[in-house]
Design a protein around this nucleic acid. Structure first.
Length: 193
DNA sequence: CGGGTTTGACCTGCGC
DNA sequence: GCGCAGGTCAAACCCG
């Protein structure tokens, strides 16, 4: 079983509440979901058969991993397996990370610069889904942001891909975050084992 | 003027 | 094959 060092190598800004106290006035974690290249089949997937991003199933872990303040779920990599051979060379879907947070604001500042490129209404959700790309040159990371259809107080943010650069925030916080991640993923390791 | 947002059109995959 | 839904494009627009 392979445990990632981070759900998204360059996405670490949210990882420590102490780093973003002002921001935490506006949201708190409800769920953390992630998907990685390897080890994406370590059992948790089984609960995601009906939906790659199942908020309900992730509740299962809420109490176990951190006393209910948050949860972690590995997502099935449906897109990659489906498209696999055809688009594998063009799509850099190595990582997909989804967060479900309770937030007053739709777009959370994760330290990266995003450019909005689309907005769609999706089925079973009265709220629109927003599509963002990383503004950095050559960086293909994408982000989807949508309000939870069942509870608009929650925002579902999905990251796809890996940044090929560091964010300003990452530079400042990397040291602390690294230590945090280590503990966090150890927890995850225990959970899965 | 450059960069970001908006928004309708278009493309693609999937289920029937 | 067709229709639907999700994802992306790109022109127009906005703003600092």
């Amino acid at each position: 079983m392979n445990i990632p060092q981070s759900p998204s190598p360059n996405f670490t800004f949210f990882s420590d509440e102490s780093l973003i106290n002002p921001f935490m006035d506006n949201f708190d974690f409800s769920h953390l979901m992630f998907d990685v290249d390897e080890g994406g089949n370590d059992g948790l997937i089984e609960e995601e058969t009906s939906s790659p991003i199942s908020i309900v199933s992730s509740e299962t872990f809420a109490g176990e991993i951190s006393g209910g303040s948050g949860s972690v779920t590995t997502l099935s990599k449906k897109e990659s397996t489906n498209r696999g051979s055809k688009e594998g060379e063009t799509k850099e879907m190595g990582h997909r990370v989804a967060f479900r947070t309770r937030s007053k604001i739709d777009v959370m500042d994760d330290g990266f610069k995003w450019r909005k490129y689309g907005k769609k209404s999706v089925k079973n959700n009265i709220n629109k889904r927003n599509y963002y790309k990383c503004s950095s040159e050559g960086c293909l990371v994408k982000k989807r942001v949508e309000r939870d259809g069942e509870d608009a107080a929650y925002v579902i943010t999905t990251y796809e891909g890996v940044h090929n650069h560091e964010s300003p925030s990452h530079v400042y916080y990397s040291d602390m975050v690294l230590s945090y991640d280590h503990d966090k993923w150890n927890q995850h390791s225990l959970l899965q084992s």
